[in-house]
């Protein structure tokens, strides 16, 4: 039995990300980190693999830079890591990412659970989570804040989901695709021994031929990236005693018609 999770390397959250004059995205000398939302999925994969007596595998799709996220995952305690790279996946759109990811899950044996973090912070979407579930034909449970029970013998799982209006308890058959929220756990820091082990690990790289998958026709293209237009506002400082500041601010807000 195994649990599979996906991750990727993204610029450090505090980094200033910009589009250079060549149109390429840079984040200066800042390092990459594990996509911040994925830390919760990685932690949960470790915990639940132990819980069901299985193995936790982490996959990244993309070029060499994503090996950093995989090494961090191994250092945390994931059992195995795989990277998928292929010229046909550069650049990658939602459909081809999902097709490659689904093929990778199918290549692994006896997968009970596919875990994702809430979203990929670089591409700014969670669409791949859903698309993989559909390509695999697995049910999907998003916004999971607690895994309440997994019964591998009966092939069922019960989870708590945090939705806008409250908390929902849902059951599903296994295998299932789950995306987790920040509330689900407290991700561990890699141990010193873990980091040493991970730094020595050789991460296998699979091509699309290894996966035996052909990609769907590309339907979406990114034409360009751009920096945010500068906020064309000049700050007006409102001085005085608190009561004066309050009165002047309300005057301005009424003029702005935002009240």
């Amino acid at each position: 039995m195994q649990i599979v999770t996906f991750t990727r390397s993204t610029p450090d959250t505090a980094a200033r990300v910009e589009v250079g004059s060549d149109g390429k995205i840079t984040w200066g000398g800042a390092s990459t980190v594990v996509n911040p939302w994925d830390e919760y999925a990685l932690e949960e994969a470790i915990v639940q693999a132990k819980n069901i007596g299985g193995k936790a595998t982490v996959i990244a799709i993309g070029p060499e830079m994503h090996s950093e996220a995989l090494k961090h995952s191994l250092a945390m305690g994931l059992d195995e890591a795989v990277r998928i790279e292929d010229p046909a996946l550069d650049p990658v759109d939602g459909l081809s990412y999902a097709a490659a990811a689904a093929a990778a899950v199918n290549k692994l044996e006896d997968v009970k659970l596919v875990l994702f973090g809430k979203e990929a912070v670089d591409v700014g979407t969670d669409q791949h989570t859903v698309m993989i579930a559909r390509k695999l034909g697995f049910p999907l449970l998003t916004s999971v804040s607690k895994i309440l029970a997994i019964d591998t013998a009966a092939g069922t799982i019960q989870v708590e989901r945090t939705l806008e209006g409250g908390k929902q308890v849902v059951t599903s058959s296994l295998p299932v695709v789950i995306s987790v929220t920040k509330e689900i756990n407290e991700p561990r820091y890699p141990s010193f021994i873990g980091i040493r082990k991970a730094s020595k690990a050789t991460i296998p790289v699979w091509s699309l031929a290894d996966l035996g998958v052909s990609l769907p026709v590309r339907r979406t293209v990114v034409n360009a990236y751009s920096n945010l237009p500068p906020r064309s506002v000049e700050v007006e400082m409102i001085d005085g005693e608190p009561a004066v500041q309050a009165k002047l601010l309300v005057d301005r807000l009424l003029e702005e018609k935002v009240l």
Binding site: P11, V17, E18, I25, A224, Y225, S226, L228
Partner: peptide, 23 residues
């Protein structure tokens, strides 16, 4: 053709559909 925020709202991406079919 669409504009969408990426990198947690730090950049914008101009993306478009290609070919026939539904978007």
């Amino acid at each position: 053709v669409a504009t969408r925020p990426v990198y947690a709202g730090k950049l914008l991406s101009q993306a478009a559909s290609t070919g026939e079919g539904t978007v």
